[in-house]
C-alpha cells in the first residue's frame, strides 16, 4: 500500500526486567486518526516514544513513509522533524513566547528564514486560535492554552504524522474542551494522527481505528462502532465500563447541576 504513512512492526521494549511492549504492530494510513487506549502502565506512552525513537525499541521496526528508523544512514533528527509530538505536560520552552515556541522548529530545524518561520508560526497559532496570545510566555497561559500552543508547534513543522501522548490528561476538566475541539478540527482537516487518550468522545467522533493495549500487547482493535457496541474481550468491556462510570457519572452530574441552575 502506498498511502501508509507510519508502519509499526513487532515492537518490543523493556526497561530492565520490566517488559513494557511485547510485539506491537499496526499501520497508519494517510489522514487516518488512530486512537490508542488502555489502562495506565500498559505501555501506551512508551509506544509513542518508540515511534519517534526518543526511546528506541529493543526489537522491531518503525517505518516512516517506507524509510526505516534506526538505519545507520538515516538521520534520526531529520526523521523526527517529520513526526510531530504533543506531550501530556505540554513541554513548551519556558523562555520563549508562544510565537517563538512555534517558530523555533521551522527556523532552526527546517532552515526557514526568520520571517518565514514567524509567518508560518503565526498561521499555526491562528489555526489553534492562539494568535492573540502570540506574545505571551508559557507561564502566562492556562494549561489548555499551553497545550494548544503545543499543538501549533507540531502543526508548524508540517509533519507527516502527529503523535499525541494523553494531551488532555493534565488539564482541569473545564480546559479539556478547547484542546479536544482543536484536535477535532485538525483531524477533520485530514491530519494523520496517533492519539493516546481516554477521551472516548473524541475517539467516537473522529477515530478511524481504535487499539486497546494492555500488558504491552494489542488486546483488541476495531472501529469506534465496534468498541462502543460489541467489544469482544472481557478486559475491554471492564475498562470501557470503568471509563463510563467515571466520565458518564460526572457528565450526568454536570447535567443535573445545569438543570438546577436553570430552575
Amino acid at each position: 500500500m502506498s498511502d501508509i504513512v507510519l508502519r509499526v512492526e513487532d515492537v518490543w521494549k523493556s526497561f530492565g526486567d520490566l517488559q513494557v511492549l511485547r510485539g506491537i504492530s499496526f499501520d497508519v494510513a494517510e489522514s487516518e486518526v488512530k486512537v490508542i487506549f488502555g489502562p495506565s502502565g500498559s505501555g501506551k506512552s512508551t509506544l509513542l516514544r518508540c515511534i519517534n525513537y526518543l526511546d528506541p525499541p529493543d526489537k522491531g521496526e518503525i517505518y516512516l513513509r517506507g524509510k526505516r528508523l534506526g538505519d545507520p544512514d538515516t538521520d534520526i533528527n531529520k526523521i523526527r522533524s517529520r513526526i510531530g509530538f504533543v506531550f501530556q505536560h505540554f513541554n513548551l520552552f519556558a523562555h520563549l513566547k508562544a510565537i517563538d515556541n512555534v517558530a523555533i522548529g521551522p527556523e532552526k530545524v527546517l532552515g526557514l528564514s526568520k520571517e518565514e518561520a514567524r509567518e508560518r508560526a503565526m498561521r499555526a497559532l491562528k489555526h489553534v486560535k492562539m494568535d492573540k496570545w502570540a506574545d505571551h510566555y508559557p507561564a502566562q497561559l492556562s494549561g489548555g492554552q499551553q497545550q494548544r500552543v503545543g499543538i501549533a508547534r507540531a502543526l508548524a513543522m508540517e509533519t507527516d504524522v502527529i503523535l499525541f501522548d494523553e494531551p488532555t490528561s493534565a488539564l482541569d476538566p473545564e480546559l479539556i474542551g478547547e484542546v479536544l475541539q482543536t484536535m477535532l478540527d485538525i483531524a477533520k482537516e485530514g491530519t494523520t494522527m496517533v492519539v493516546v487518550t481516554h477521551e472516548m468522545g473524541f475517539a467516537r467522533s473522529v477515530a478511524d481505528e481504535m487499539i486497546f493495549i494492555d500488558g504491552g500487547v494489542i488486546v483488541e482493535r476495531g472501529t469506534p462502532h465496534h468498541f462502543f457496541t460489541s467489544p469482544e474481550s472481557e478486559r475491554v468491556q471492564q475498562f470501557l465500563h470503568k471509563l463510563d462510570e467515571l466520565y458518564g457519572q460526572t457528565r450526568d452530574e454536570r447535567r443535573t447541576i445545569a438543570e438546577r441552575d436553570q430552575e
Binding site: 533528527n77 510531530g84 520552552f93
Partner: peptide
C-alpha cells in the same frame, strides 16, 4: 527533561 524531549522531537541536534 520535558523541554529536552520536546526539542528532540522537533528534530533538534544535541548542539541545538
Amino acid at each position: 527533561t520535558g523541554q529536552v524531549l520536546a526539542a528532540q522531537s522537533l528534530g533538534m541536534t544535541k548542539h541545538e
